[in-house]
Structure formats: C-alpha cells, structure tokens
C-alpha cells in the first residue's frame, strides 16, 4: 500500500467550450462558450437554472464526451477521454444492483485489476458503511447508497471529483450530514472538486468559489470567490448576504 496517497488535486483549464446536441433535425446549443480556470484543490460550485448545461459540462470534463469546440486541459494536458483521475459522481447513486456494497466500492479495482482489500476497508469505514459491506444496494437507504457511491468514487484517490447534484435526491437532514462529510473528505484528501448544484446554501457551505451560469446555452454570468473560513454557519450574516447576492444574479431577487 502507498503510504502517502496523492492528496493534491489537479488543475483544470476550459477554454471557449461550445457544445450541443442534435435531436432529430434540430441542433440545440447547450454550452455557448465557457472559459474557466480552476486551480488544484479548489472546490467550485456551478449554479445555474435547470437544464442550462451544467451536467453536460461535467461530462465533458470527465471525458465522457468531447466538446464540439474548445479545449479542456487537466494539469495542462488535453482531456482525450475518461481517466480514473477524474471521477464523476451522479445524482443517483447508480450502484450496480448485482454487486454488494463492497463489490460496488471496489469496482475500479476490478477494472484496473489492482486489488487492494485494505484500501476498500479503509474507504468503507471512512464513509461510515462498516458492517454493511455485504448488503445489496436495494437494501440501502438513499443516504447510505450515496455514501457507497462516494466511496466508490474516492477509493483510488482521484485528483478531481466531479459531482452532479450528488445530494439532490436526499432528504434535508441526510443532506446536511452528507455535506459535512463531503467537506471533511475534501479537506482530508485535497482533491479538486467541481459540483453542480441547485442549492445556493449548499454551494455557500462547501465551495471556495461559486460560478453562476446563464440559461441554455450556458455562459458564465458571475464568478465569486468565497473567502469565508470554514465551518460556515448557515445563519452567518456574511453567508446570508452572499446568498442574497447570488440569488439576485440568478434572477431570483424578488423570491425569498
């Protein structure tokens, strides 16, 4: 086992990314020119109206699709396809129902062929799933399933974690716990994180930087550095001020 795991994240450079989909005969532009540089170790939250192309952006960074225009650099190298350094975590846990929790968590080891049982044990206990290694996914609650998905994503110490509303479907209280967890893991492991969310509070609670996007095709509307120290409390006046500021930028000034 490696004694000092790679705890540093990778840096990302997106230059003039444009992307779209052809549905039938119509071409829909989804991303309309996004340029964004993210330093190693940042936690960036992407906020924007529904369907604005945030998830597409994550898929492009993950390398699951190639952008129509523009270039994505990870640590200075162009992204040519998926890579275990860049792990994408979805809104649904997408655990494989035919694998136990343990087998799901060790998925990437099966793919790479490098077995490391101790690493599996470590990550399972890190996300609080000890004792449930042999459970089937359908036996887990939503929060447990998402923890297993988190363990599966983090087991090989990825340098970049792409989170596509990973807490979107959890109940409010489980969500709070998971936000704390996510923050702790990010602190401990030092990976770079890019998280898509609809929840301004979640972004304020976790992110070092909040990027807001326009409606489709997505462009960057604002890029706010959140310099508040962790742990940020939800009723902190500065947090509340930022929250109002961001909601205004998202076009929700008159909503509360």
């Amino acid at each position: 086992m490696v004694t000092t795991p790679a705890t540093s994240g990778l840096s990302l450079g997106l230059s003039a990314i444009r992307h779209g989909y052809t549905l039938g005969r119509d071409f829909t532009a989804v991303i309309g020119g996004v340029t964004l540089n993210i330093a190693a170790g940042e936690f960036v939250a992407l906020l924007g109206p529904s369907g604005c192309g945030k998830s597409t952006l994550l898929r492009l960074i993950a390398g699951l699709e190639a952008p129509h225009e523009g270039e994505i650099l990870a640590d200075g190298l162009p992204v040519a396809g998926p890579h275990p350094d860049r792990i994408l975590m979805f809104q649904d846990p997408t655990l494989y129902p035919w694998r136990t929790v343990r087998q799901n968590v060790s998925l990437s080891q099966d793919i790479s062929g490098k077995k490391d049982a101790a690493a599996v044990d470590d990550i399972i206990s890190l996300v609080g799933l000890s004792g449930f290694e042999r459970a089937w996914p359908h036996q887990l609650s939503g929060g447990m399933a998402q923890r297993a998905a988190l363990a599966r994503a983090l087991i090989n110490h990825p340098k970049l974690l792409l989170l596509d509303e990973p807490l979107g479907k959890l109940d409010a209280l489980t969500r709070l716990t998971m936000q704390t967890e996510l923050h702790r893991l990010w602190k401990e492991r030092g990976f770079t994180a890019v998280m898509v969310t609809h929840d301004v509070e979640e972004a304020l609670f976790l992110a070092t930087r909040i990027v807001t996007l326009s409606a489709r095709p997505a462009r960057i509307v604002s890029d706010i550095q959140v310099d508040l120290p962790f742990h940020r409390h939800r009723d902190d006046p500065q947090v509340l001020q930022l929250r109002r500021d961001i909601l205004t930028r998202l076009g929700h000034r008159d909503d509360w």
Partner: peptide
C-alpha cells in the same frame, strides 16, 4: 441497461470488454 451504468465504469477507465461482460451481461441477467 441504464446508460449511467456504463458511464460509471467508463469514468473509471473500463474498456469495451469490461462494459460488455461485467456491466451489460450481469445487468441483463
């Protein structure tokens, strides 16, 4: 098969062989 199952394995570097035998096949069982 839920396409997300393939995406999960692909982001971890899985190739066609793994996607077919270890994802598609058990999912279709």
């Amino acid at each position: 098969v839920d396409p997300a199952y393939y995406d999960v394995a692909r982001t971890m570097g899985a190739r066609e062989r793994f996607l077919t035998l270890r994802v598609a096949l058990p999912a279709a069982m």
